[in-house]
Design a protein around this nucleic acid. Structure first.
Lengths: 203, 203, 203, 203
DNA sequence: TGTTAACCGAGACGGTACGTCGCGTCTTTCT
DNA sequence: AGAAAGACGCGACGTACCGTCTCGGTTAACA
């Protein structure tokens, strides 16, 4: 992302081995992400991606075996920066923050298009689907720390199913995105996280 | 539907010549559903559908403007018979039954393929997406009777957000189907419905 | 044409329905001619013809086996009225009149479109081609009277090849229509007929 | 840059790698010509052409916008080699040779089918028709040298309409081909050329 | 510093599927 | 009964995009 020096005018470290190749790779992935975010998976063609990256189509195919894999790569890159998972001090607060995060990344027009693209991509090949499943499982797994902290605090009993709680918060948001199309806003995030927090707490 | 004699319509006097059109329409939709359930949206071609329905490709296009609309139609038809929504007498029981129903229809290999197909189809055009959203919203709305009954019983306070509760049960199931790929079994249905029931009940 | 008896219920002698059937037939042929004259053979569809005749497509097919035959019929009808073949008193005059007639019927925008349509139609089936050949052979044969009169007058020797002379006048006009597209005007008609007249006269 | 011998040593020298594109183009045009000559324009489909050229349908469409343009191209290529236009020393002899040439190229079964194909093709679009007109005008123009030579010899007066004379010879031949279907043989060629020669000569 | 191997641009190609058009046939319905 | 209405079978058309291949020209690493 933000480099201190763009290297454009400077040539100090410009001849690094990670030079052109890496630059091309990054450019293509950026173009992919951009198109995914705006027009969606179906309307994103490899030729368009290449053109936008200022690169030829064959160059894209040299690095990625198929459109689906290119998209998968772009998604992975795109997902690296993300997911703060702040510690608010309470389970309810943490779940609320999580819901807000997910809702924010999925609720905007761009986010919605991008997220739908990801799902669409995985329907194009079984291997890709498996790969994406692993990606999401791991990604959601990161949020389980919320539950672990609550257990440490004593809010939740030992043995609480962390995965279930995270899914209960995140699932309904994606449900709205992919199935019902109902609005995904802060209020909805509040309500779903509150419901789950209440259900998780003993008593 | 299991018939005692499948070809009764072919031979015996039962034959009802009035309605080639309807027969063709039904045949094409059946073929579509079948392919969707087995090979999925991407690998279902109009020509294959037509061949399986014993009909010519152009006949399909005469009735449906595009593959996406054909699928939408098939989904709607397929969804007409469904959703018992039994009254078990308690909110927890009703939600559990709902979760089991959804999990059953989505958890099998066929069900999973079919369900993913539906989502994939809606990424192909904006109008179709809107249409499918309406379909799902209505369909999930049917389950809200569960909450209404609980309110009447006094289990839940008046003013409870029925929609939210249904989404909280159904969302995580679809999340597993579309994102994480984790198993969708009866146990999972039990746990998610229990969590939501606990969260919904006051106190 | 006014009939003495309606013939609807009677079958006096020959069954000659001067009624609806003939009216439909005439209307369809008129519509065909009109479309042929304006948009040409390729862009004339049976449905359009039917619509313009205020009749259903199947009605057209009940009477004519194919588009090509319908066109052939229309052409024949259209050609019935025509070909004056005046006697000017000299071979040169008669040939000039012939050339003018042909040029006039083929030289206008409508006439050109119609004439090209006829040729196009005959490329669609071998039977039709044979039929059209016979039609044209007979039609050109009518002009041979010009030569016969010249022989009687003593302008041309007995045994002159009438067919050849007619072809020599008409051929170049169609050549311009179908191949070179050069203008077909009165001047051209004058020059070609004069050339042929000169070539035909002995000495 | 032009290399002396790029790959000549790779195989047997016989192999001429310079130009897959050109090879494909030539192959498709050859296949087109062949089909045109045998089955005619209407029964020639792009798929058949492609198959016969050992090429895929889309490859054909990449180079030619439509069937009509493909045919036009094939015709042009096919016409490059042709038209001897020998100098026999007399107008009559030259015109006879011309008539024989045209009759030969149009009179055989193959030649007739091909020639009709050309005319049929030009009825499919206005642009194509204009293009074909120019082609034919130029092609017939080549024969005008016959008249020019006769003028130089003093057989014909200065100012003789060369175009008219050529049309007078060629027109009747095409008339037989396209309209009357009468036989196109050497005898006919003799007679029509003699008639025109006689008409053109002064006195 | 010259050589070589990896990489890129350009462009055509095979192939699958899409959606369209118009011909001629067949069934259903209406009068 | 027979025509209107309307599907349907069918063959072909022309298009879009995927992923592959070949060729020629750069670029960059390495001997």
């Amino acid at each position: 992302m933000s480099q201190t020096a763009p290297d454009e005018s400077v040539r100090v470290g410009e001849q690094r081995p990670g030079g052109r190749a890496a630059r091309v790779r990054a450019g293509v992935l950026a173009a992919t992400t951009e198109l995914l975010n705006t027009v969606g998976y179906e309307r994103t063609s490899i030729e368009d991606v290449a053109a936008r990256a200022g690169v030829h189509k064959t160059t894209v195919y040299r690095r990625w075996d198929s459109k689906a894999e290119l998209v998968a790569d772009a998604v992975r890159l795109d997902a690296e920066q993300a997911v703060p998972m702040d510690d608010t001090g309470t389970l309810a607060g943490d779940l609320q923050a999580l819901a807000h995060n997910v809702a924010a990344s999925v609720g905007s027009a761009e986010g919605a298009t991008r997220s739908r693209s990801i799902v669409a991509a995985s329907t194009h090949s079984d291997e890709l689907m498996v790969e994406m499943h692993a990606f999401w499982a791991e990604r959601l797994g990161l949020a389980e720390v919320i539950v672990e902290r609550a257990v440490e605090r004593g809010e939740l009993p030992v043995g609480t199913d962390a995965n279930l709680i995270i899914e209960a918060v995140v699932g309904p948001i994606w449900l709205r995105l992919l199935l019902t199309g109902e609005p995904i806003d802060a209020d909805f995030a509040d309500r779903i996280s509150a419901l789950v927090a209440a259900g998780a707490m003993p008593g």
